[in-house]
Design a binder for these strands. Structure first.
Lengths: 143, 143
DNA sequence: TTAACTCTTTAGAAAGAGTCTATTTCCCAT
DNA sequence: ATGGGAAATAGACTCTTTCTAAAGAGTTAA
């Protein structure tokens, strides 16, 4: 289903750009995530990577996704109380979340803008803004 | 710390308004939640309720919070990957979430408006819109 | 080539939130 | 009082995520 990967060379380049030591496991995970812009849970990453032949442990998947998030290579999306999604599209954008089928999809950035940024609580700095539009109903599977 | 409760009469009234059978356990949980507008996790509810003398089991806390959410008495807030918060303020509003200390606070609704609602995915209906502004840094404890 | 060192990966145990199940308790109408 | 349905309970269980202690890989220095 999801078997095409980004090229190894490109994955390595992306890792090095962010000062991430390009180990075998990190390269394979990057190849998977950056095959195309998408949202994956840790479990999905684990399953897909293992299909690709390279052995990667569960702990390494979690470590690697956390590292990628910390280095800005992917973005964590918190919408489903049961698991974290990792988004390989780091261009600023927001999400639809279908509460019936758990499907997460992007909102075109142009079609959603905040009118103004409210005053932040004292002593805090902005980290990011997440807009989640929750929808119900069986949407078509994405192409 | 958090020992004042809403009155029993008021709690019963709120439950009945939403067609919820006002049992002992549900009343105590409602008294706790509606003492003031606030955000609580299931675990916090469990601990606070047990302090108040009435015995309530963990399962009942989870069942009750789900029921309250389903009936529109509270709103689930998904911001922290490790737990769900229940918000007893159901007036439409959005949230600041401090990623350093886990503190959740309300955004004055007037200060944050979306410019336009994007087109929803085919076959879906709107369920709700959540805006979360993530901040960093040690904010002062709330009064 | 080996030795020393650091960084990464690993299996499996453990933590923590939330759910489930089978049983008991509660409450009310008869 | 009693029969019945709704609610509550203890505790086992599931699932995601984190931790731990040990093994492996890669690099440099001699």
């Amino acid at each position: 289903m999801n078997n095409q990967l980004a090229s190894k060379a490109e994955a390595i380049r992306m890792l090095q750009e962010r000062d991430i030591n390009p180990t075998q496991q990190r390269i394979v995970i990057a190849q998977l995530l950056f095959a195309r812009p998408q949202h994956m849970s840790a479990e999905q990453v684990l399953m897909n990577v293992q299909d690709s032949g390279v052995h990667v442990s569960k702990a390494t998947v979690y470590n690697t996704l956390s590292l990628f998030a910390e280095k800005g290579l992917v973005k964590e999306v918190i919408v489903d109380p049961t698991k974290v999604f990792y988004d390989s599209n780091i261009v600023p954008h927001h999400h639809f979340f279908n509460i019936d089928n758990g499907q997460l999809s992007d909102i075109d950035d142009a079609s959603l803008q905040l009118q103004a940024m409210p005053q932040l609580p004292d002593g805090t700095q902005l980290d990011g803004v997440d807009v989640i539009i929750r929808v119900r109903g069986q949407q078509q599977a994405q192409a």
